[in-house]
């Protein structure tokens, strides 16, 4: 099983090595784990890529309702460290959101 099925359904393009907000770091478990350590106990999100699960390969910039799930109040794009979106889909999502912003479907910034 482990050899045939990769864990991440889409391993994205090329590099992929050190993306900073991947979030699934394993090395933080130790007792001296650093300032973020104590959050771990009560703070766990289900981190699956929505687009991978629902097999939505094309992210449409006109689909405001869908995009808004990834644009919280302030109008910023939700980082994938929080949303759990995979790299490939985060990139597509990012493009879609930016396009939607151009045609005023989604705010650039909101207060």
């Amino acid at each position: 099983m482990a050899t045939t099925a990769p864990r991440r359904p889409h391993s994205g393009g090329g590099g992929g090595g050190g993306d900073r907000d991947r979030g699934d770091r394993q090395g933080q478990g130790g007792p001296g784990g650093g300032p973020g350590g104590k959050k771990k106990f009560f703070f766990r999100r289900k981190r699956v890529c929505k687009f991978c699960v629902e097999k939505l390969e094309y992210i449409d910039f006109k689909d405001v309702k869908m995009l808004q799930q990834f644009v919280p109040e302030r109008g910023k794009i939700l980082p994938r460290r929080i949303s759990g979106t995979c790299a490939l889909h985060q990139r597509k999502l990012q493009n879609a959101i930016k396009r939607a912003r151009i045609v005023a479907l989604i705010p650039f910034a909101a207060d």
Partner: peptide, 15 residues
């Protein structure tokens, strides 16, 4: 006020 032209065939094909 605004317009946007997006080519979609490649993305759709890829999808």
């Amino acid at each position: 006020l605004r317009h946007i032209i997006v080519r979609t065939d490649l993305d759709l094909k890829r999808a």
